[in-house]
Design a protein around this nucleic acid. Structure first.
Lengths: 228, 228
DNA sequence: ACAAAAGTGTTAAGAATACACCCATGT
DNA sequence: ACATGGGTGTATTCTTAACACTTTTGT
């Protein structure tokens, strides 16, 4: 295994995969594409692809996400590296190493580009069988997201600039998978001082209009006291 | 950048690096080696090396740690993958991707093996200038460790099977970099029910002997309430 | 007897939880 | 007038934080 000393070093294949989350209809959804090629042709999979020499993993992520799903990373509110998986046993084509990223967005529009492969957002609670071990990766990612919203303001990346407290609570409920008490949620969240009232009102449906709030910062911040 | 479609795909170099922590004299120390080759010949660096095809990153970590520092991963209480760094700009030899692991141990004995490169444990508070951006990696790793001990029982990996409450508190103080109140620390930690009293007593020095405790589990557990 | 670390309890302030009704709107 | 989601307060329990003296040993 000391090939490198003899000048015969051969690196494994390097790939990147993206787990892009978005809340749709109060459900946490993940971006998947239908694979156009073997292996797992026709199965749903995370968007991803090869990472060649000279390209950073972040650049490869950006490129593959745009190519396979027509989504620009600029439209994501937050991107972070998740974990690096060894795929020795996992990929039928042989040894590869996959660097995974998690991205959070809202109102993501999928542009059907030339090379795109039918990108869709599917609720994480209703995933069909996926290619490779992508279900494991999504589960891991969901776990990370759950943790992330409890000690940071990451929810900003899943909400519009202006939002109601009910929408905010809905994001937490969708990710944590449980209902929260409205009064306690509001009291706690407001006491964290991450958001502020605006003068705007959101009218919708046959009920009392809601006040709109906004995050003070549109970038990741740690909470002073963790949540839930 | 679509070389792979033409069968010309060339992956970047893949390397692994390990950040191995140990508490020595109430100080958090990290394992470093003196580089025997260019680049950064003579500088201190994290132990690491190439990861060739057919080998998982974990296997490569294990192998390089043994080869460069004579430390067996079996002697570590905890190992976890940290982060994957792109080294396009960082490595003078060109584009590489480095998967980093964090390991925690106690009483680690460095065996000077044939290929070993003067491995030493150095307090993180007194690091000299290091090769590459290894200082950044260590800082990141320290941050992760700080978080880890506040929401898990990870401290078990840095302590002997039996330990005194003062030793346990010392681990927290060394990692958090601040002093803690003895009474509050004990009350809180005991209430978490992760450790239990033993009948053993530790006598040392000209003072009252201390009761020894042990962790109920020698594997990672989340705390019911997070710490500090 | 002294030095050195071990061990121990109370009080006050802050945070979390449980819980139910009125408000503003559209139909 | 009714259905729908928006908005609000209090009492209780639990958790944290601040704080100082006695005990046991070796020399």
């Amino acid at each position: 295994m000391n090939n490198m000393y003899k000048g015969e070093y051969v690196p494994p294949t390097l790939t990147v995969d993206s787990v892009i989350f978005q809340i749709i209809n109060a459900q946490l959804c993940v971006l998947l594409i239908a694979r156009a090629q073997e292996p797992f042709r026709g199965s749903l999979a995370l968007p991803g692809g090869y990472n060649a020499v000279g390209e950073t993993t972040h650049e490869a992520m950006k490129r593959t996400l745009l190519a396979k799903a027509g989504i620009s990373t600029d439209s994501l509110g937050l991107i972070e590296q998740l974990y690096t998986f060894d795929t020795v046993a996992r990929d039928p084509r042989g040894h590869a190493v996959s660097v995974t990223y998690m991205g959070l967005g809202k109102d993501l529009t999928i542009k059907q580009s030339k090379g795109a492969q039918n990108p869709v957002f599917i609720p994480v609670s209703q995933l069909p069988e996926l290619a490779y071990d992508h279900d494991e990766i999504i589960k891991y990612s969901h776990e990370r997201l759950r943790a992330k919203i409890t000690y940071t303001n990451a929810a900003f990346a899943l909400l519009p600039k202006l939002f109601t407290l009910s929408q905010l609570q809905g994001v937490y409920e969708a990710i944590l998978g449980k209902e929260l008490d409205k009064r306690n949620f509001r009291k706690k969240f407001l006491s964290l001082e991450l958001i502020e009232k605006t003068q705007k009102i959101y009218k919708e449906g046959a009920h009392r209009p809601a006040r709109l709030y906004k995050f003070k910062q549109q970038r990741l911040q740690e909470l002073s006291r963790s949540f839930e």
